[in-house]
Amino acid sequence: MDFRLDDDQIALRHAVRGLSERHFALGAVAAREDAPAADPAWRDLVAMGIFGLLVSDGDETPRNGTVTAAVALEELSAHLATGPILWTTITAPVLTGGEIEAGRVAGVVVVGDAGGPVVIEHATEAEFLVVVHHDRIERVETTSLPEVIAGEPSDPLTPTVAYESVPRGDVISGPDEARTIRLAGTVLAAAQLVGVAQGALDVAAAYALERHQFGVPIGSFQAIKHLLSDMYVRVELARSSTFAAAAILDDERGGDAARAAGAAKLLAGQAGIDNGRAAVQILGGMGFTWEMLPHYFLKRAWVLEQSFGTAEFHALALGVALGAGVVKA
Protein backbone atom coordinates (compact mmCIF):
# COMPACT_ATOMS: atom_id res chain seq x y z
CA MET A 1 0.00 0.00 0.00
CA ASP A 2 1.47 3.29 -1.10
CA PHE A 3 -0.46 6.48 -1.72
CA ARG A 4 2.39 8.43 -3.26
CA LEU A 5 3.13 9.16 -6.88
CA ASP A 6 6.47 7.69 -7.89
CA ASP A 7 9.42 9.76 -9.12
CA ASP A 8 8.61 9.14 -12.78
CA GLN A 9 5.05 10.33 -12.28
CA ILE A 10 6.23 13.48 -10.53
CA ALA A 11 8.74 14.10 -13.31
CA LEU A 12 5.98 13.62 -15.89
CA ARG A 13 3.79 16.14 -14.08
CA HIS A 14 6.57 18.74 -14.33
CA ALA A 15 7.16 17.94 -17.99
CA VAL A 16 3.44 18.23 -18.79
CA ARG A 17 3.27 21.49 -16.90
CA GLY A 18 6.15 22.83 -18.99
CA LEU A 19 4.47 21.69 -22.20
CA SER A 20 1.18 23.24 -21.11
CA GLU A 21 2.79 26.57 -20.35
CA ARG A 22 4.42 26.56 -23.81
CA HIS A 23 1.39 25.52 -25.84
CA PHE A 24 -1.64 26.21 -23.70
CA ALA A 25 -0.77 29.41 -21.85
CA LEU A 26 -3.92 30.61 -20.08
CA GLY A 27 -3.06 34.21 -20.94
CA ALA A 28 -3.45 33.41 -24.64
CA VAL A 29 -6.54 31.23 -24.40
CA ALA A 30 -8.63 33.47 -26.66
CA ALA A 31 -6.30 32.72 -29.58
CA ARG A 32 -7.14 29.02 -29.30
CA GLU A 33 -10.90 29.48 -29.56
CA ASP A 34 -12.45 27.40 -32.33
CA ALA A 35 -8.96 26.35 -33.44
CA PRO A 36 -8.23 22.68 -34.08
CA ALA A 37 -5.76 20.73 -31.96
CA ALA A 38 -2.89 21.91 -34.08
CA ASP A 39 0.74 21.06 -34.31
CA PRO A 40 3.19 21.67 -32.76
CA ALA A 41 1.19 21.16 -29.53
CA TRP A 42 -0.27 17.83 -30.67
CA ARG A 43 3.10 16.63 -31.98
CA ASP A 44 4.69 17.42 -28.61
CA LEU A 45 1.96 15.52 -26.76
CA VAL A 46 2.60 12.52 -28.99
CA ALA A 47 6.36 12.84 -28.50
CA MET A 48 5.94 12.96 -24.72
CA GLY A 49 4.18 9.60 -24.91
CA ILE A 50 0.90 10.75 -23.36
CA PHE A 51 -1.14 8.61 -25.74
CA GLY A 52 0.87 5.49 -25.04
CA LEU A 53 0.42 5.52 -21.27
CA LEU A 54 -2.30 2.84 -21.31
CA VAL A 55 -0.78 0.78 -24.14
CA SER A 56 0.85 -2.55 -23.32
CA ASP A 57 4.44 -3.07 -24.27
CA GLY A 58 4.29 -6.58 -25.72
CA ASP A 59 2.60 -8.63 -23.00
CA GLU A 60 3.58 -6.14 -20.35
CA THR A 61 0.63 -4.09 -19.10
CA PRO A 62 1.90 -0.67 -18.04
CA ARG A 63 2.29 -0.62 -14.28
CA ASN A 64 0.19 2.13 -12.71
CA GLY A 65 -0.67 3.40 -16.21
CA THR A 66 -4.06 4.87 -15.29
CA VAL A 67 -2.55 6.79 -12.38
CA THR A 68 0.18 8.14 -14.65
CA ALA A 69 -2.37 9.13 -17.29
CA ALA A 70 -4.47 10.84 -14.59
CA VAL A 71 -1.43 12.91 -13.57
CA ALA A 72 -0.89 14.05 -17.16
CA LEU A 73 -4.54 14.70 -18.01
CA GLU A 74 -5.21 16.62 -14.81
CA GLU A 75 -2.31 18.93 -15.51
CA LEU A 76 -3.27 19.49 -19.15
CA SER A 77 -6.84 20.15 -18.18
CA ALA A 78 -5.83 22.76 -15.59
CA HIS A 79 -4.44 24.66 -18.61
CA LEU A 80 -7.58 24.06 -20.67
CA ALA A 81 -5.55 22.11 -23.23
CA THR A 82 -7.27 21.65 -26.58
CA GLY A 83 -7.63 18.54 -28.72
CA PRO A 84 -9.19 15.08 -28.25
CA ILE A 85 -6.73 14.12 -25.51
CA LEU A 86 -9.06 11.90 -23.46
CA TRP A 87 -10.34 9.69 -26.27
CA THR A 88 -6.97 9.41 -27.98
CA THR A 89 -5.50 8.21 -24.67
CA ILE A 90 -8.17 5.65 -23.77
CA THR A 91 -8.63 4.17 -27.24
CA ALA A 92 -4.92 3.72 -27.94
CA PRO A 93 -4.90 0.15 -26.56
CA VAL A 94 -7.59 -1.01 -29.03
CA LEU A 95 -6.41 0.85 -32.12
CA THR A 96 -3.36 -0.54 -33.82
CA GLY A 97 -0.25 1.44 -32.97
CA GLY A 98 1.24 2.45 -36.31
CA GLU A 99 -2.00 3.50 -37.89
CA ILE A 100 -2.99 6.05 -35.29
CA GLU A 101 0.44 7.45 -34.78
CA ALA A 102 -0.02 11.18 -34.33
CA GLY A 103 -3.68 10.71 -35.18
CA ARG A 104 -6.53 12.32 -33.29
CA VAL A 105 -9.30 10.08 -32.01
CA ALA A 106 -12.79 11.31 -31.23
CA GLY A 107 -15.22 9.04 -29.48
CA VAL A 108 -18.60 8.67 -27.91
CA VAL A 109 -20.34 6.23 -25.59
CA VAL A 110 -23.75 5.15 -26.82
CA VAL A 111 -26.08 3.88 -24.11
CA GLY A 112 -28.80 1.69 -25.61
CA ASP A 113 -30.88 3.48 -28.20
CA ALA A 114 -31.64 6.75 -26.50
CA GLY A 115 -32.78 8.36 -29.76
CA GLY A 116 -32.15 12.01 -30.49
CA PRO A 117 -28.99 13.47 -31.91
CA VAL A 118 -25.55 12.00 -31.15
CA VAL A 119 -23.26 14.70 -29.80
CA ILE A 120 -19.53 14.16 -30.27
CA GLU A 121 -16.63 16.31 -29.15
CA HIS A 122 -13.76 16.82 -31.58
CA ALA A 123 -15.47 14.81 -34.35
CA THR A 124 -14.64 17.43 -36.96
CA GLU A 125 -10.95 17.60 -36.11
CA ALA A 126 -10.26 13.89 -35.64
CA GLU A 127 -8.91 11.37 -38.11
CA PHE A 128 -10.58 8.49 -36.26
CA LEU A 129 -13.94 8.01 -34.62
CA VAL A 130 -14.68 5.30 -32.06
CA VAL A 131 -18.15 4.42 -30.80
CA VAL A 132 -18.36 2.46 -27.55
CA HIS A 133 -21.49 0.37 -27.08
CA HIS A 134 -22.35 -1.72 -24.06
CA ASP A 135 -21.01 -4.91 -25.64
CA ARG A 136 -18.60 -3.76 -28.35
CA ILE A 137 -16.42 -1.04 -29.75
CA GLU A 138 -16.91 0.13 -33.32
CA ARG A 139 -14.60 2.18 -35.48
CA VAL A 140 -16.48 4.52 -37.78
CA GLU A 141 -14.97 6.19 -40.84
CA THR A 142 -15.15 9.93 -40.33
CA THR A 143 -15.85 10.28 -44.06
CA SER A 144 -19.05 8.28 -43.62
CA LEU A 145 -20.52 10.72 -41.09
CA PRO A 146 -23.63 12.63 -42.14
CA GLU A 147 -23.89 16.41 -42.28
CA VAL A 148 -23.61 18.01 -38.85
CA ILE A 149 -26.67 19.71 -37.39
CA ALA A 150 -25.87 23.42 -37.55
CA GLY A 151 -25.03 24.86 -34.14
CA GLU A 152 -22.53 26.69 -32.00
CA PRO A 153 -20.44 24.65 -29.50
CA SER A 154 -20.97 25.79 -25.89
CA ASP A 155 -17.27 25.47 -25.03
CA PRO A 156 -15.20 27.63 -27.38
CA LEU A 157 -12.24 25.35 -26.67
CA THR A 158 -13.99 22.06 -27.45
CA PRO A 159 -15.36 21.77 -30.99
CA THR A 160 -18.53 19.76 -30.46
CA VAL A 161 -21.08 18.78 -33.08
CA ALA A 162 -24.36 16.90 -33.26
CA TYR A 163 -25.44 14.32 -35.85
CA GLU A 164 -28.91 12.93 -36.40
CA SER A 165 -27.28 9.51 -36.14
CA VAL A 166 -23.93 7.83 -36.53
CA PRO A 167 -23.50 5.07 -39.13
CA ARG A 168 -22.43 1.62 -38.05
CA GLY A 169 -18.73 0.95 -38.19
CA ASP A 170 -16.40 -2.03 -37.99
CA VAL A 171 -16.49 -3.91 -34.71
CA ILE A 172 -12.93 -3.78 -33.38
CA SER A 173 -13.40 -5.09 -29.83
CA GLY A 174 -15.83 -6.90 -27.58
CA PRO A 175 -17.51 -6.34 -24.20
CA ASP A 176 -14.37 -6.64 -22.05
CA GLU A 177 -12.55 -3.91 -23.93
CA ALA A 178 -15.72 -1.82 -23.97
CA ARG A 179 -15.91 -2.06 -20.18
CA THR A 180 -12.20 -1.23 -19.82
CA ILE A 181 -12.55 1.84 -22.02
CA ARG A 182 -15.66 3.04 -20.22
CA LEU A 183 -13.93 2.72 -16.83
CA ALA A 184 -10.74 4.39 -18.03
CA GLY A 185 -12.78 7.16 -19.65
CA THR A 186 -14.78 7.67 -16.46
CA VAL A 187 -11.69 7.97 -14.28
CA LEU A 188 -9.69 10.08 -16.72
CA ALA A 189 -12.65 12.41 -17.33
CA ALA A 190 -12.69 12.76 -13.55
CA ALA A 191 -8.97 13.58 -13.63
CA GLN A 192 -9.65 16.25 -16.24
CA LEU A 193 -12.43 17.67 -14.09
CA VAL A 194 -10.05 17.79 -11.13
CA GLY A 195 -7.71 19.81 -13.36
CA VAL A 196 -10.56 22.15 -14.33
CA ALA A 197 -11.55 22.57 -10.67
CA GLN A 198 -7.95 23.29 -9.66
CA GLY A 199 -7.48 25.73 -12.55
CA ALA A 200 -10.63 27.62 -11.57
CA LEU A 201 -9.44 27.78 -7.95
CA ASP A 202 -6.01 29.07 -9.00
CA VAL A 203 -7.59 31.83 -11.12
CA ALA A 204 -10.01 32.83 -8.35
CA ALA A 205 -7.33 32.83 -5.63
CA ALA A 206 -4.95 34.94 -7.72
CA TYR A 207 -7.72 37.45 -8.43
CA ALA A 208 -8.72 37.61 -4.75
CA LEU A 209 -5.17 38.63 -3.83
CA GLU A 210 -4.86 41.18 -6.61
CA ARG A 211 -8.25 42.89 -6.63
CA HIS A 212 -8.65 45.65 -4.03
CA GLN A 213 -11.91 47.08 -2.72
CA PHE A 214 -12.42 49.20 0.41
CA GLY A 215 -8.62 49.58 0.39
CA VAL A 216 -7.81 45.89 0.92
CA PRO A 217 -7.53 42.73 -1.21
CA ILE A 218 -10.96 41.09 -1.48
CA GLY A 219 -9.26 37.86 -0.37
CA SER A 220 -9.05 39.32 3.14
CA PHE A 221 -12.86 39.21 3.46
CA GLN A 222 -14.19 36.09 5.15
CA ALA A 223 -17.04 35.81 2.65
CA ILE A 224 -14.49 35.40 -0.16
CA LYS A 225 -12.21 33.19 1.95
CA HIS A 226 -15.03 30.78 2.59
CA LEU A 227 -15.93 30.51 -1.09
CA LEU A 228 -12.28 29.81 -1.87
CA SER A 229 -11.87 27.26 0.88
CA ASP A 230 -14.98 25.41 -0.31
CA MET A 231 -13.40 25.30 -3.77
CA TYR A 232 -10.26 23.84 -2.22
CA VAL A 233 -12.18 21.20 -0.27
CA ARG A 234 -14.09 20.13 -3.38
CA VAL A 235 -10.96 19.74 -5.46
CA GLU A 236 -9.03 17.86 -2.74
CA LEU A 237 -11.88 15.45 -2.14
CA ALA A 238 -12.33 14.85 -5.86
CA ARG A 239 -8.61 14.36 -6.39
CA SER A 240 -8.30 11.78 -3.59
CA SER A 241 -11.24 9.89 -5.02
CA THR A 242 -9.94 10.09 -8.59
CA PHE A 243 -6.42 8.90 -7.88
CA ALA A 244 -7.74 6.11 -5.68
CA ALA A 245 -10.02 5.04 -8.54
CA ALA A 246 -7.12 5.19 -11.01
CA ALA A 247 -5.00 2.99 -8.74
CA ILE A 248 -7.89 0.51 -8.43
CA LEU A 249 -8.24 0.34 -12.22
CA ASP A 250 -4.55 -0.49 -12.39
CA ASP A 251 -4.95 -3.26 -9.81
CA GLU A 252 -8.52 -4.30 -9.13
CA ARG A 253 -7.53 -6.12 -5.95
CA GLY A 254 -7.47 -2.62 -4.40
CA GLY A 255 -11.26 -2.23 -4.53
CA ASP A 256 -14.44 -2.23 -6.59
CA ALA A 257 -13.46 -0.55 -9.88
CA ALA A 258 -16.92 0.45 -11.12
CA ARG A 259 -17.88 1.92 -7.78
CA ALA A 260 -14.60 3.79 -7.37
CA ALA A 261 -14.80 5.20 -10.90
CA GLY A 262 -18.38 6.35 -10.45
CA ALA A 263 -17.66 8.01 -7.11
CA ALA A 264 -14.65 9.83 -8.58
CA LYS A 265 -16.59 11.06 -11.60
CA LEU A 266 -19.48 12.24 -9.44
CA LEU A 267 -17.28 14.24 -7.08
CA ALA A 268 -15.02 15.58 -9.82
CA GLY A 269 -18.05 16.72 -11.85
CA GLN A 270 -19.41 18.62 -8.87
CA ALA A 271 -15.97 20.11 -8.19
CA GLY A 272 -15.49 21.19 -11.81
CA ILE A 273 -18.89 22.81 -12.21
CA ASP A 274 -19.15 24.31 -8.73
CA ASN A 275 -15.60 25.67 -8.86
CA GLY A 276 -16.24 27.14 -12.32
CA ARG A 277 -19.32 28.90 -10.99
CA ALA A 278 -17.54 30.03 -7.82
CA ALA A 279 -14.75 31.52 -9.93
CA VAL A 280 -17.31 33.52 -11.93
CA GLN A 281 -18.74 34.79 -8.63
CA ILE A 282 -15.41 35.68 -7.03
CA LEU A 283 -14.31 37.67 -10.07
CA GLY A 284 -17.60 39.53 -9.78
CA GLY A 285 -18.63 41.64 -12.79
CA MET A 286 -15.36 40.81 -14.50
CA GLY A 287 -16.08 37.14 -13.94
CA PHE A 288 -19.19 37.55 -16.07
CA THR A 289 -17.17 38.82 -19.05
CA TRP A 290 -15.89 36.69 -21.92
CA GLU A 291 -12.48 38.32 -21.44
CA MET A 292 -11.77 36.59 -18.12
CA LEU A 293 -10.99 32.91 -17.60
CA PRO A 294 -13.77 31.51 -15.36
CA HIS A 295 -16.30 30.86 -18.13
CA TYR A 296 -13.82 28.70 -20.04
CA PHE A 297 -13.39 26.47 -16.97
CA LEU A 298 -17.14 26.30 -16.36
CA LYS A 299 -17.89 25.41 -20.00
CA ARG A 300 -15.18 22.76 -20.11
CA ALA A 301 -16.55 21.31 -16.87
CA TRP A 302 -19.97 20.88 -18.48
CA VAL A 303 -18.44 19.10 -21.49
CA LEU A 304 -16.80 16.61 -19.13
CA GLU A 305 -19.82 16.32 -16.83
CA GLN A 306 -21.87 15.12 -19.80
CA SER A 307 -19.28 12.47 -20.72
CA PHE A 308 -19.00 9.01 -19.16
CA GLY A 309 -22.05 9.42 -16.96
CA THR A 310 -23.49 12.47 -15.24
CA ALA A 311 -23.52 12.96 -11.49
CA GLU A 312 -27.16 11.77 -11.40
CA PHE A 313 -26.30 8.59 -13.27
CA HIS A 314 -23.42 7.69 -10.98
CA ALA A 315 -25.30 8.71 -7.82
CA LEU A 316 -28.11 6.30 -8.64
CA ALA A 317 -25.69 3.49 -9.47
CA LEU A 318 -23.82 4.00 -6.19
CA GLY A 319 -27.02 4.16 -4.17
CA VAL A 320 -28.43 1.03 -5.76
CA ALA A 321 -25.14 -0.83 -5.18
CA LEU A 322 -25.09 0.18 -1.53
CA GLY A 323 -28.70 -0.90 -1.10
CA ALA A 324 -28.05 -4.25 -2.70
CA GLY A 325 -25.15 -4.80 -0.33
CA VAL A 326 -22.89 -5.76 -3.21
CA VAL A 327 -20.16 -3.36 -2.17
CA LYS A 328 -16.83 -5.02 -1.47
CA ALA A 329 -15.45 -4.25 1.97
Partner: peptide
Protein backbone atom coordinates in the same frame (compact mmCIF):
# COMPACT_ATOMS: atom_id res chain seq x y z
CA UNK B 1 -31.10 6.46 -3.60
CA UNK B 2 -29.27 9.17 -5.55
CA UNK B 3 -28.89 11.16 -2.36
CA UNK B 4 -27.41 8.12 -0.62
CA UNK B 5 -25.18 7.54 -3.66
CA UNK B 6 -23.82 11.09 -3.47
CA UNK B 7 -23.16 10.65 0.24
CA UNK B 8 -21.47 7.31 -0.43
CA UNK B 9 -19.09 8.92 -2.93
CA UNK B 10 -18.15 11.60 -0.39
CA UNK B 11 -17.74 9.13 2.45
CA UNK B 12 -15.46 7.02 0.28
CA UNK B 13 -13.40 10.04 -0.78
CA UNK B 14 -13.08 11.18 2.84
CA UNK B 15 -11.73 7.78 3.76
CA UNK B 16 -9.21 7.99 0.91
Amino acid sequence: RRHVGRLDASVDALWR
